[in-house]
Nucleic acid binder design. Structure first.
Lengths: 248, 248
DNA sequence: CGATATGTTGAACATTCTCAAGGGATGTGG
DNA sequence: CCACATCCCTTGAGAATGTTCAACATATCG
């Protein structure tokens, strides 16, 4: 069942693909050396649960490759995704020892982990880490508030367009491409996961995705590969300021 | 128009009512002295806007008394509240110079302010402030994620119950009362503000508040004073875990 | 007093949900 | 290689929750 996943991640932080965006972004080379001593990699298959809500958090870490989601569930099964973790995002909360949310790998996933205690010790002695973590947490808070607008006030169609717009934008920044010209990316989420992110049902997601396709806002190759011929058009459909609102 | 508001706030941080919960909570007495040098108080009347989204942020600070809200608006007027700031909550983001949200006083409000630059300088030299700010930001992020569940997955009735439950809880902790026995508090929000918080219309808020009253979940004195005879009952109506989920 | 802000209530309507059925694609065991 | 199960997705029809629009109530304030 447990397919072995090849972990071709550089041993040295200097060559790490998320070196300049992750929690270690501000570290000097001597600080990196100390991080290297305590870091280790873990891999997960798509669908695997990384941490269960309520469980003891043994480690914190960064997403290196792949996508993970934070979800919250009610007893009756209603589920809301509350975070979409892309490469360089941080998982875990220093100073808390049980997880508040389920963390699930939505694609194959590689994480750079630190056992919690050594990391907390390092945080105290390494202001660069705490500074960067504060900055990242503030960014996440902004993203969460952006989502609150999506969840509370947007229509189903706008919600879908918003999600596509965010993924497209993050994908573009990760690949160092601008948002000019056509964008193209793979959806890292099933229709159900999109529904959980957007506070919709998967049927509504399916209908609205296909409606956007019919209207030429997006094009689909298969079910998951999305082409955005005109990013501004997508932004309009998302109800965002025409002049690309600057998110993260 | 600008009614003068009496500012009877202690000049000394040692006597400040939010001393142990605000961004200064971890400061030593010498650090407090330096904060005292750069702090100043500002008062706002209910309804006044503290900062406009997009404006230059001249200061950051803490809510000392009263309630403020963070709201985000779309061009067509749809509005979503994304933060409810109660005493001890922090306003402003160090390292950013224009406000991302409208900040509005929903009741008369007293803030303890620091001009942004001196505060940022102090943050660099005073780890206790940065540490506390990180902690508070992580708490806010948790609260935002809790709200995402409310916005995305709860019914109108559950949304109202959730909001009342949160206000009741924060009010109780501020007054050092437990959540045992009947709770009582004033709603610091109009029906419209509640609607903006919950992603509803004000009509739906009105109907559901009165439905909760009809069903004996709450009692009302006037339109704004709420009595909660049984907090567990309210939590159930909110769709929360029966065993009071520990929020903040 | 009239003007304004806040809150309530009703009836028609719309968007989204629910329930149900079915369509590929992939994988597995016979 | 086929039969079958499973996963993911699509589509339809009816139901339901919440919205919209409108009227009215109540309180405060100048």
């Amino acid at each position: 069942m447990q397919k072995s996943v090849t972990v071709d991640v550089p041993r040295e932080c200097g060559e790490c693909p998320i070196r300049h965006r992750a929690v270690c972004a501000r570290c000097e080379s001597d600080e990196l050396l100390r991080l290297e001593e305590i870091k280790y990699y873990r891999s997960y298959e798509a669908g695997q649960t990384v941490v269960w809500s309520g469980d003891r958090m043994e480690f914190v870490g960064s997403v290196v490759r792949g996508v993970a989601s934070l979800t919250q569930a009610m007893e009756d099964g209603r589920t809301q995704m509350v975070g979409l973790l892309l490469p360089s995002d941080f998982v875990g909360r220093p100073g808390r020892d049980s997880a508040a949310y389920d963390v699930v790998a939505t694609t194959d996933l590689v994480m750079c982990c630190f056992r919690k205690k050594p990391f907390e010790d390092m945080m105290v002695r390494t202001p660069h880490i705490a500074q960067r973590l504060l900055e990242m947490t503030l960014d996440e808070l902004d993203a969460a508030r952006e989502w609150m607008l999506v969840l509370g006030r947007k229509t189903a169609r706008e919600k879908i367009a918003s999600l596509l717009s965010i993924i497209a934008r993050r994908d573009a920044t990760l690949n160092l491409a601008g948002v000019e010209g056509p964008l193209e990316f793979d959806l890292p989420l099933t229709r159900e996961a999109m529904a959980d992110y957007l506070g919709l049902t998967l049927e509504t997601v399916s209908r609205q995705v296909n409606a956007l396709k019919r209207d030429g806002v997006i094009d689909l190759v298969g079910k998951r590969h999305v082409i955005v011929p005109d990013f501004d058009r997508l932004s309009e459909e998302a109800g965002d300021d025409s002049d690309g609102g600057m998110l993260s």
